[in-house]
Nucleic acid binder design. Structure first.
Lengths: 213, 213
DNA sequence: ACGTTCACTTAACGACGTTAAGATAGGTCG
DNA sequence: CGACCTATCTTAACGTCGTTAAGTGAACGT
């Protein structure tokens, strides 16, 4: 079926062109300032055309984010090679923070906006998406650390530890993104804030003389 | 000047009625979902009337937030009575987190949205507002802790320590607000997350056998 | 009594996301 | 080859939003 395949390919190409145009505008101006009309103008189509390929604006933007977040998930793979769970934790936090600070609009849409109530259909779609993978990846690192006896005796719950680490890094990233230009806070270089947070989290969670793999 | 005063008082009352109506809608639905038309309908005026009393929607909502945040600043005053700087830190973090979790839409507008580039005029207006006060209050606590030798030797910068503490608490609060209904993260009670974060921050920042006042 | 001031309204503008209806190209099948 | 069909893209519009220009009218000072 040559012609049928060619049609499908052309449709996919138009879809990608929309996606690329939207991503460029989105990365530059954020989701509030991107309009469907702008995206359409960029690819020289009518706004209506976008709705042939995407359900609505939200779907379009989330697809951009999902796609780019899997780049982050890919980077995490290198972390698994580190032997020490605590070193894995440090590296994961650093990669996550860098990604957030370098893709601020992605990060804002994914982690700093209100999520809609999850419909059952949405829950199904979420299974195995990059963000869930990243969280699960973190939990696995913590479990390895727990098994190796790295953490203080008062910390036993892998989910709670993982959430605390996530919250710490997320706090640095999101505070930066939303408050960087506040005139009454003297921020150091972002990398220094991130490293300090990681140091504090590790020092606060692990016990002295914890085993190193 | 009896009549002149009465007119001013009436104007102030109308202003307050707008403010109250807006706050109620805002607290319930968040800033994205509140419309000027709804606010106007609630006080039985025309939308245009709001612009007699407020510059625009943003000014109106920020005035609501500023006003309510000074309630938080007021609560901080009780903290100053605690003798130990580390206890002050714990209490401040707890009050801040509770306020954020109980006033989610306020918190989202103040700390989870993009700030506009600060114009010189805006900087001037910001001097001495509740949020700046809160940050400065935290820095003072840290400085007291530094003077008392509470912190580990690697932590010497009061601003950096304060920002790390702020980021940690902010991370817990903001992650909750934006991601609470994610189906693939098992959150404990919010209070437990907050306390864990405070414990980890304190354990990670202070040294063993730190002096207690 | 007259003119002024100013809180408030009417009407409208322009931009937004989105949709119903139609055009028009291409492929399918007699 | 020609009639039908499918599916992409367009035209035109709807309803909503924040905001503003141009009044209106009652209360004020003189």
């Amino acid at each position: 079926m040559g012609p049928k395949e060619r049609i499908e390919k052309e449709k996919a190409e138009t879809r990608d062109r929309i996606l690329d145009a939207a991503r460029e505008l989105f990365a530059e101006k954020g989701f509030e300032a991107v309009t469907m009309r702008q995206i359409a103008q960029k690819i020289e189509y009518t706004p209506t055309t976008i709705y042939v390929h995407f359900k609505d604006k939200e779907s379009l933007l989330h697809e951009i984010c999902d796609r780019d977040f899997s780049l982050l998930a890919q980077k995490f793979l290198a972390v698994a090679k580190l032997a020490d769970p605590i070193e894995q934790l440090r590296k994961t936090g650093l990669l996550y923070a860098r990604f957030g600070l370098e893709n601020r609009n992605h990060y804002r849409l994914m982690f700093m906006s209100l999520r809609p109530e999850p419909t059952p259909e949405l829950i199904e779609r979420k299974k195995g998406n990059p963000t869930e993978d990243a969280y699960e990846f973190l939990v696995q690192i913590i479990k390895a650390g727990l098994a190796a006896g790295c953490f203080r005796p008062e910390h036993k719950d892998a989910q709670l530890i993982a959430q605390t680490v996530w919250a710490g890094i997320h706090g640095v990233v999101s505070l930066r993104i939303s408050n960087e230009c506040d005139p009454w806070v003297k921020w150091p270089a972002a990398e220094r804030s991130v490293k300090t947070m990681i140091d504090v989290l590790v020092a606060g969670l692990t016990r002295e003389g914890a085993p190193r793999a």
